[in-house]
Amino acid sequence: MNYAVVGTGYWGSNHVRVGAELRDAGEIDELVVCDVDEARAAEMAAEFDAEYVTDVGALPGRVDAATVATPSPTHHGVGTDLLSSGVDIMVEKPLTLDAQNAWDLVETAERYGRTLGVGHIFRHHPLVTDLKRRIDAGEFGEIRYLWTNRFALREPRRGAGVLYSVAVHDVDLYGYLLDAWPDNIGCRLDSFVRDDIDETASLSLGYGETTGVISASWQVPVFGKSRELVVVGSERAARIDYLENEHYETFSLDPETGAEEGTETITVEPVEPLKAEVVDFLDATKSARHPKADGRVGAAAVELLEVATRADATGRRLSTSRTEGNGATVRRCSQP
Rank of each mutant, 00 (worst) to 15 (best):
D130Q: 15
D136R: 13
R158H: 08
R114V: 07
L131G: 04
H124C: 04
N101T: 07
P126T: 02
E92M: 03
L116W: 06
Y112V: 00
L97F: 10
L146W: 05
L146F: 13
Y112S: 07
L105I: 09
H124S: 04
L173C: 01
G113H: 11
P126G: 01
R157I: 00
G138H: 08
R157K: 13
D98R: 09
R134N: 08
Y164C: 03
E110P: 13
I135A: 06
D98Q: 07
N149R: 12
D98G: 09
E107G: 08
H124I: 05
D98C: 13
K132F: 10
I135M: 12
E155R: 14
V128W: 05
Y112F: 15
L97W: 11
T129Q: 15
G119W: 04
L105A: 05
A167P: 11
T129E: 14
T108W: 01
R154G: 05
G138R: 09
V128A: 04
Y145G: 00
I121A: 07
A167K: 11
A137S: 14
V106T: 01
R157C: 02
A137L: 12
A137I: 12
G113D: 13
E92P: 02
E92R: 04
L146E: 09
E107W: 08
D172M: 12
D98Y: 07
R134F: 07
Q100S: 14
L163V: 11
L95R: 02
E142P: 06
F122C: 00
I121H: 03
V106R: 02
A167V: 11
D170G: 03
V91K: 06
D98I: 00
G117Y: 08
L95H: 02
S165L: 12
H120S: 10
R134S: 10
L153M: 15
T115M: 01
F151K: 12
E139W: 06
L127W: 03
R114F: 09
V118Q: 04
D98V: 01
R111M: 13
K132D: 10
T96L: 10
D104K: 13
R111G: 08
G141C: 05
L146C: 11
A160N: 10
V166M: 11
L153S: 12
V162F: 00
H125I: 01
G138A: 07
V128E: 04
L97D: 08
L146G: 10
Y112R: 08
D170Q: 14
L153T: 00
E107I: 00
N101G: 12
P156R: 08
T115V: 15
S165P: 01
G161E: 10
H124F: 11
